[in-house]
Simulated scan of single mutants.
Amino acid sequence: MNASLGPLVGHALQINMHPLDVDHVVETLPHQLRAWRGQVDRVVITLDHKVSTTGRYHAADYDEKLAQLTGLLERLSGSDTAIHVDLVNYSSEAIEGVRKAFFSAEPSLPLKAFDGGPFYAYFYGLYRANAERVLHMDSDMLFGGMSQRWMAEADAVFDARPDALFVCPFSGPPRADGTIDESLHVGFPGRRAFVPPQWLGLDVPAYGFNAVSTRIFVLDMRRFVERIGSLPLVRPDFKRRLRAHLLDQSPLTMPAEEVLSASMERLGLERVDLLGGAPGMFSLHPPYRNPAFYRQLPELIRRTESSDLPDGQLGDFDVNASMIDWSDALAAKSRPARLKKALRQLIAANRARLLGQ
């Protein structure tokens, strides 16, 4: 296993990334550090450098991307000893350590979800952060409001609400009355019992949920041990297992966020989305990638940090068309385009399998 990152701390920021994320990380990581470095004791950048033969994490220029990202991370960590770059360790010893920490009742720990998305890497990052409360985020998350008191306010919510397993920044910039667009929160494809967001009536805008996304959350690790202990995997249905087999993926589990959410629902635990006192803290997620996104990303970050956002963006947790023209990205998500992509993936996966790659 990688060298120890140090003793247990109160708060750690933990960010998952992959070399192919570098085109946005050059802008988003400095932004994320501006938002959060002053509120945590340790920063752990969890770098999943595993090469895929097919799918989203496969690219001909992988080595070039890895070199670019490594250079950026070395510069940032060299200027702050609390920033640790931690390569995901796929040794049997490391996998067993993560299994015991989060899935001790399961005989084995899948490395990927049924769709090929990261699974082990998420829990490895939480495990390695070694903090009482871990602020986890994906590498593309954006933040506005930028309150430097938000983490202390989140601690107060944890202390006051014993069923709160997660506290998150507000889901998107609030509307003028402090609310979100509740109709946008519809749950996950693999979950049936999604409860709509509940307005909590606190002194500041806050909502309660019975589900969590791996995009962004603060997890109370001690509460996880006390209330959950071991996460049961959520088995995919037949259609998803068949898809996994056809695409040469593991059919053992649904994505990490559905596994976490299923245990929350079963045990009556909650996630609290908290804006906090002015100027507050909210998150914003770019759902697609296209040339306009990369071209406008520095300005998008500037406007998000300063809460200089159009009315059409208020209440929405995803960067929408009021800020970025997503038309070409949406065209690539059309049914014919998705079928064409699935066919390419099917051919590539089975070619790799037949050739023993």
Rank of each mutant, 00 (worst) to 15 (best):
N2Q: 11
S4T: 14
S4W: 07
G10N: 15
A12S: 15
Q14F: 01
Q14G: 04
L29F: 15
P30H: 09
H31P: 09
A35W: 10
W36N: 11
W36C: 11
R37G: 02
V40K: 12
R42P: 07
I45G: 11
T46Y: 00
K50I: 00
Y57I: 00
A59W: 06
A60Q: 09
D63V: 03
Q68T: 13
L72T: 07
L72C: 05
A82R: 11
I83S: 09
I83C: 10
I83V: 14
V85D: 03
D86N: 08
D86E: 12
V88I: 03
V88E: 01
S92R: 09
S92W: 01
S104W: 00
S108Y: 07
K112A: 08
F114D: 08
G116A: 05
G117P: 04
P118Y: 01
Y120T: 10
Y124K: 09
Y127Q: 14
R128I: 04
E132Y: 02
H136G: 09
M137P: 01
G144V: 05
E153H: 01
D159R: 12
R161Q: 12
S171L: 15
R175G: 08
E182M: 12
G187R: 09
P189W: 12
V195E: 15
V195S: 13
V195K: 13
Q198P: 00
Q198T: 11
L200E: 15
L202F: 14
N210P: 01
E226A: 15
I228T: 02
I228S: 02
F238C: 02
R240V: 00
P251I: 02
P251G: 05
T253M: 03
P255D: 07
S261G: 12
S263V: 05
G277M: 03
P279N: 11
M281A: 10
P287F: 01
Y288C: 03
A292R: 08
R302F: 04
R302Y: 04
R303Y: 01
S307G: 03
L309W: 08
D316S: 14
V319D: 06
A321Q: 12
M323K: 04
D328R: 10
A329Q: 04
A331F: 09
R335K: 11
R335N: 02
L339S: 04
Q345H: 09
R353E: 02
L354E: 04
